[in-house]
């Protein structure tokens, strides 16, 4: 039982990171109907931004850690907005395939620019928060970094839900996502909403990057590829375009991965995790929370 709970905690903490990244994929898909493949590299830039900011402030303090987090989120929000402005917006009226290929190009650009500027060798990500390990009565162990993941992820998810559900810009996001033409007819500038969406999604990816690096403290410019791919799958699993779905998909993927990892099939973790996902999608092609949409003519 204890082992089951332990694995569950580990899985949830990994899944929360996937969820944070998956939200960016799903939100951008919601407003633009394409997959931003450069998103996984924004996640990487988030980790590096945290790495460089942390060199200038006191280590292992709560305030310092939060400052690193906020700084990385801000930098990535700007990066996301700039990417959309320079690479995707000029292609808005073209076929989605063009944008998709451009996204792959931006992804490669960021990875190679990362190797150029940050160096290709892995760097050791510092411990931002004071590191402690908590042992509970029944032998359950939880590190302060795992706790940080939970706390930060929950706060961000709740804030995001608040922004999307209760604020004017969030409602505008949902309006643009449903019908951009109708949105412009009520005076919504679609460009502003799209920029905002990119900023928000990229900030969440940055938070994901920091939390990931805290738990797996070796960072390099290609670190985003696999977690990004998994987060993308998580977004599809939850129902692409659906925000709670992305969170659910992320958590589920993290849990599945951790449990397989803890079994005797651990060599095949990724293969088994993805096989399970394929099975789920066979039975629910629109994802767990997604609705099948009839293409409108």
């Amino acid at each position: 039982m204890t082992e089951f709970l332990q694995q569950l905690i580990n899985g949830l903490s990994l899944g929360a990171i996937y969820a944070l990244i998956a939200l960016g994929y799903t939100m951008v898909y919601g407003v633009l109907r394409f997959i931003n493949f450069a998103h996984s590299d924004v996640f990487m830039v988030g980790a590096f931004a945290g790495y460089y900011i942390s060199k200038r402030i006191p280590r292992e303090s709560l305030g310092g850690g939060l400052l690193v987090l906020a700084g990385a989120m801000l930098i990535c929000a700007i990066l996301g907005i700039v990417i959309e402005r320079l690479a995707y917006r000029p292609l808005r009226s073209r076929s989605k395939l063009n944008v998709l290929i451009t996204a792959i190009g931006v992804s490669l650009l960021l990875e190679n620019a990362g190797q150029f500027f940050f160096g290709a060798n892995p760097k050791v990500f510092p411990a931002l928060f004071p590191v402690k390990t908590f042992t509970f009565g029944n032998g359950l162990v939880m590190s302060s970094n795992q706790m940080a993941v939970f706390i930060v992820a929950i706060i961000l998810l709740v804030s995001l839900q608040f922004i999307v559900r209760k604020t004017k810009i969030g409602t505008a996001m949902r309006a643009v996502s449903f019908n951009p033409t109708a949105a412009s007819l009520v005076g919504i500038n679609n460009d502003v909403v799209i920029s905002f969406t990119f900023g928000l999604g990229s900030a969440l990816a940055a938070a994901g990057g920091i939390l990931y690096a805290l738990n797996y403290p070796s960072i390099d410019p290609l670190m985003g590829i696999l977690p990004g791919l998994k987060a993308f799958v998580a977004a599809v699993l939850g129902g692409i375009g659906n925000i709670p779905g992305a969170a659910l998909g992320g958590l589920l993927l993290g849990i599945i991965e951790t449990f397989v990892n803890g079994s005797r099939f651990s060599t095949y973790t990724d293969a088994i995790a993805f096989a399970i996902l394929i099975l789920i999608l066979l039975f629910r092609p629109a994802g767990l929370l997604g609705k099948l949409q009839v293409e409108k003519v």
Binding site: T171, A172, R174, A175, S177, F178, V186, I188
Partner: peptide
């Protein structure tokens, strides 16, 4: 109409 928003939210968007 924004079919995914409530009636009230639709009207609020009208006053965007």
């Amino acid at each position: 109409v924004f079919a995914n928003l409530t009636v009230l939210e639709n009207l609020q968007m009208g006053a965007y």
